[in-house]
Design a protein around this nucleic acid. Structure first.
Lengths: 145, 145
DNA sequence: AGATAATTATTAGCAAAGCTAACAATGTCC
DNA sequence: GGACATTGTTAGCTTTGCTAATAATTATCT
């Protein structure tokens, strides 16, 4: 009962990491308002810009959303000329969704705002604190992979 | 132009922290499906359970949502007997929203699932790595305050 | 005190996001 | 060739988000 419980102590790393991540993203979400896109559209576009073109099903899976939901999000993005829907040459059922140059530009500007807002928060940190934070992020990245 | 740019180098701490937080929460979101509550309801309930009772306006502000939106979320939570809406004794316009015992129990169970999932991910870490992560989280908590 | 203004929450009505079910089109397999 | 699986869309529902308008109460200012 004591060995099997990884968090017998209060305020485990996991709990605090969980809470801190929620607060961080909630804080940065405000920056997205200026983009003119809703959060799900922005998020889907982000996958395409940073992860490259993919099928609708893959995009839905990446966003943890059902295909019909993603289909309508792509509708909106395509209507705004931020993505293009092209037929998959190898499988004519499939669709290849790609971010356009306009979509890429819009997304990069938005992410820059978010990162800048976070940078501003991090500005008062000492060099040592930044290093600790960086090593923590590295570990976290490994854990999430 | 070079001094004023906090991230002239690629993959700044802010960028990586941002990306890692997104991935972390996306991963843990799956655990919420079992709760029977939607994400906004779960999140509002969380504020009440961990932050204590508060007015509708305060709750809306905490969730970065407009009062009408929160009013309906509270409707649903109250209908499920997870929160109670009581009149504010000092200001009869106001409403005091409190998590019920059932709401508290449901939320704690859900958070336990999320934290357990994250604990499972952190399990392979060495003691030293956990310590680095912990110190990183402490810094992050301070930055977000 | 009494009129006016500000605050608090709800209701109404709209757009967007999520879902399941049903469907069309294509690909796979025997 | 024909049964079956996969891929994406359409249809129709609930929930979430918003703004505008309303009711009720509290605060303010002569």
């Amino acid at each position: 009962m004591s060995v099997k419980h990884p968090h017998d102590w209060p305020d485990s790393v996991a709990e605090r990491l969980h809470a801190a991540s929620i607060r961080l993203l909630r804080l940065l979400r405000r920056e997205d308002d200026d983009s003119g896109l809703t959060a799900p559209r922005l998020s889907a576009l982000s996958v395409l810009v940073f992860g490259g073109p993919r099928s609708l099903g893959e995009l839905a899976a990446a966003e943890q959303v059902r295909p019909p939901t993603m289909s309508r999000i792509v509708d909106a993005l395509a209507a705004a000329a931020l993505v293009s829907r092209d037929p998959d040459p190898t499988d004519r059922r499939g669709v290849r969704i790609t971010a356009t140059e306009a979509g890429r530009a819009l997304l990069l500007a938005g992410r820059a705002r978010r990162v800048a807002a976070l940078e501003a928060r991090l500005a008062p940190l000492t060099v040592e604190e930044r290093q600790v934070l960086q090593r923590g992020v590295e570990i976290l990245e490994r854990v999430l992979r």
